[in-house]
Amino acid sequence: MITVERLTKRYGPFTAVDDVSFEVKPGLVTGFLGPNGAGKTTAMRVMAGLTPATSGRATVLGRPYAALPNPGRHVGLLLDASAQHAGRTGREVLTLGAILMGVGKHRVDEMVELVGLTEKEANRRVRNYSLGMRQRLGIAHALLGDPEVLILDEPANGLDPAGIRWMRDLLRGYANEGGTVLLSSHLLNEIERVADEIIVIGHGKIVAQGTKDELLSGAGTFTRSTDDDALLAALAAASIVAQRTATGGLQVEAEPVAVGRVAVAHQIVLTELRGADSRGLEEMFLDLTADAAREEVAA
């Protein structure tokens, strides 16, 4: 359980996180989605007590992070897979964590195996790790203390599609056992594949949040029929906004059930009726990304 209440973090005139509130519930994988520089990492660092908040607060398991006794046993952190001493071996990184948390050395072996690093790889220095291997080491470190909560910043970065699926299965299984998971990503399809709940952040503000189904269904309906002209007219008569798409069929700003009712009333045969792809979410996200890109160019 993570609770963020009216959290704001300013750096001089720049507001990195702007009055953000949300809750991350146990038993679910919550995705924190936003373009680079949206404030995800800053918000996560505040949750982990590494960055002081300007105002507002974040609590993990009901208390501020700094008040957790032996926090590694309660919260697993992966804030930056590259933030490891280049001169240590992967195994040594895990061993240091195990000593500090007071979990046995066998737990290190278990985690090395869990993320599929070979004995040889574990004994290699982190300097020689690929990004994907660093991510795996980071995930192993986050899980080392058998935590109740996971806070992972861009954990899928550097993983291939098979790796992303592996992570989805891992986090799914972990959440099913009652764990709380917050993971961030700047890639929509990554979040779509892994998360149950999605929080979208842009310019430090939350622009959307809800279950994946809610957010995706907000995208409206896509439909095709034997007579799209008639359907378009019928929908207009029911004051439902709809428009033709370039590839044929109609994009309707209503739930599939509403479109179906109109079609039945006018005895129009539908050949396709489904919730539109995540277009709504995707467009909102692309707008955010475009804004961020423009700002980068301006700067």
Binding site: G49, L50, Y65, P71, D80, A83, Q84, G97
Partner: peptide, 13 residues
């Protein structure tokens, strides 16, 4: 080496 993220994450005091 930015290991502070881990060190101070494991002991915030």
């Amino acid at each position: 080496q930015r290991t502070g993220l881990v060190t101070f994450g494991l002991e915030p005091r």
